[in-house]
Design a protein around this nucleic acid. Sequence first.
DNA 1: CCCTCGTTGGAAAACGATTACAACACGAGG
DNA 2: CCTCGTGTTGTAATCGTTTTCCAACGAGGG
Lengths: 361, 361
Amino acid sequence: MGRGLFDLRRTVRTRLVVRKGEQHMGIREVAKKAGVSTATVSRTLNTPERVRGETAARVRQAALELGYQPDPYARALVSGRTHLLGLIVSDITNPFFPELVKSCEDLAVRKGYEVIVANTDYSPPRMSQCVQRMLERRTDGVAILTSEMDPDLIAGLSGRHVPLVFLDIGCVQEGVGNVAIDYDEGIRQAFRHLWELGHRRFGFISGPLNLTSARIRRNTFLRCLHELGGDEQRGAVCEGNHKVEGGKHAMGELLKLDPRPTAVLSSNDLSAIGAIRAAREQGVRVPEDISIVGFDDIAFSSCTDPPLTTVRLPMGTLADAVLGCLFEQIESGLQKAREYRVGTHLIVRSSTGPATMRDSE
Amino acid sequence: MGRGLFDLRRTVRTRLVVRKGEQHMGIREVAKKAGVSTATVSRTLNTPERVRGETAARVRQAALELGYQPDPYARALVSGRTHLLGLIVSDITNPFFPELVKSCEDLAVRKGYEVIVANTDYSPPRMSQCVQRMLERRTDGVAILTSEMDPDLIAGLSGRHVPLVFLDIGCVQEGVGNVAIDYDEGIRQAFRHLWELGHRRFGFISGPLNLTSARIRRNTFLRCLHELGGDEQRGAVCEGNHKVEGGKHAMGELLKLDPRPTAVLSSNDLSAIGAIRAAREQGVRVPEDISIVGFDDIAFSSCTDPPLTTVRLPMGTLADAVLGCLFEQIESGLQKAREYRVGTHLIVRSSTGPATMRDSE
DNA sequence: CCCTCGTTGGAAAACGATTACAACACGAGG
DNA sequence: CCTCGTGTTGTAATCGTTTTCCAACGAGGG
């Protein structure tokens, strides 16, 4: 963070707004037009119940005619509420995020909030910058949608009394909410699907195991194996990196196994897509020779070849939970931060099929 | 827009900041600690050349020790500059955008700006909402990265003297810049590549032809055909929708042709991906039987099967141009809005190959 | 009729910065 | 010695709201 505090901020300071004849449309103009004071105008806009209906109507009419819109900055200055939300993601380029971000934005805008998003690029120092940005802009709340979280950074945030919400990190406390994706259920759905198709030897392509959420998925897989399959030797785990290329590599390893798994579950869709490619390159047919199921249901997974069977993580619901948690905290003044839970369901497409007789033994 | 002006904005108005003992760190505290007036502090931060070096150092030291950070809202209120930029895209879910948005954000943050993005979802009424949002938040500049633009909306914006920049719309004027992607060159590169591989019968999958930028690409294709190939009968155009499914359908049509094209150019990568799938489904091998080239080089196009040969649109450069144009306008006080131009280059991967003897006649 | 209470609206004090203007010191030039 | 410019700092006005008081008013009870 090199050169200290105020380095890059300088730009030319010409006053931007010149608005040739017509001077600025402020609350004063509305007040004059409606024949009331600015206080009354403000009240009609913010606490209508504290102003007589008739007066309110007159004010609203005036505001409408003048096309008045309160200045968010003046408003923020005095009220302390910026109507800005922060979204911290690891990398918007990762196809998991755009849908989520979009849903969040929609919801936020509908409540009169604006959203700024920051990418950590999976790196703690950049994460620290992101937090810094949120603090500087005085966001009314921050959603941290990524795992590479330095504990003392959340201290930095929660020390400022900013409502927070995490994805898949356990610690719910005053001012810190959490939404937990039901990975457990999701993996189980996928496993059951494969089991019912007759598969008995499984592979699992995990995410980077330093991520909590990746570990959960792997562990559930292991547990399924134990509960349903009995013998753990029938399952193999291979670590990927939640990207196409990692999935490809992991699948390469899995295919070397003897006996080879007839079905592989993947920690996310990107890995699964890599897996499909690896299989194809080695002449292994999907789903005839091997079944593959993903996780997330990113938009692209319906466009792969073959279309990917996957566990859908409903982005809309997820966004609802995330922002819901934030708004609840904001409106209650940092009180009740709850734990939210969002479920999943299986989408069966064409990358899974019945185990062949030979294999199913 | 239903219920009038102030409908959804209401939220509870509890004062957020309570900051238990330690009262707020303002410019006054810094001033006191440094033994100067607030004016001097402000000057140190904004126009250091107007402050004696020694004093400046003292102020900076104090600011650092106190962890002072100027309130952007107070700053915006008085200076009229919000340090907020708007980005209007059609749909962040479209894989073309995330990279672009990310690059823009990076650049913006580096200059001390923050970015808010708005999705039009390809619909004019939503576009109008987006513009509204930008106006309300008093963004210092807006980049409109999408084509479905209602002319009177840009009037609404440019009437407010907000620096604007468009993508691929011709009209450069006071306060309105433009960055033009060199589609012409791009298509030519792709065409030449195929020509040199011996291809002589071409197909083109266009985007929706009501989009200017889609028309440009198609027209260039037609022109290439004319210049190099002579006979126009050797080329066929089929309209897609810039999505996978449209490309798939268009490719279906192209494959029905007799004689069938040996190479197809696509208006964007998504269409090309659809085209590959359509080909495969009909048992047509890529690139042995037919060559396919895309446009944009979205991240995914290196992960298709086979990896897609495509025309790379350098997102970093594009973002540079877009923000550069905005900053130039902001810093010059709305004067010189220039036209920028960003080039392309061909990325050869595996979806193109030599035409077979039989075909190349 | 007077007092009190509840409702409504106005005047003015925040909010936290920027910046116009004035003041002052200092050295140079006449 | 006076004046004038230049460089440095302080004082106070300002930006456009929200919000805290407080005054005015009408109604209802004693």
